[in-house]
Amino acid sequence: MLLIPCPYCGKRDEHEFTYAREGHIARPTNGEQLTDAEWAQYLFMRKNPKGVHYERWMHAKGCRRYFNVARDTVTHEIYAVYEMGQPAPVIERENGR
């Protein structure tokens, strides 16, 4: 059970949150001009990294705000939480982690 620092409410148990989706995927505003393949890229294709993953969570049992989390998919270490609209921080990690 992760302990997730909600940027607004503070540290809370994972069961208070819902995982939303991968972060930083902007909805194309020119959908009509995109090919099916380009649209599918936005719609279906997601990263599945071993290591830092930038993702979106929602504090469902708390403030109901969405926010971004930079989480290590191997260790579950949470490097950063940051508000919607902020750029993804660069995470410096030790070698081999």
């Binding site: 819902t18 939303a20 902007a26 909805r27 979106r56 929602m58 469902a60 109901r64 705000r65 969405y66 919607m84 609209g85």
Partner: peptide, 13 residues
């Protein structure tokens, strides 16, 4: 509710 909030909070800010 979560779906609508998602678009308002994350995309159409």
């Amino acid at each position: 509710m979560a779906w609508l909030e998602d678009w308002l909070q994350c995309e159409w800010t």
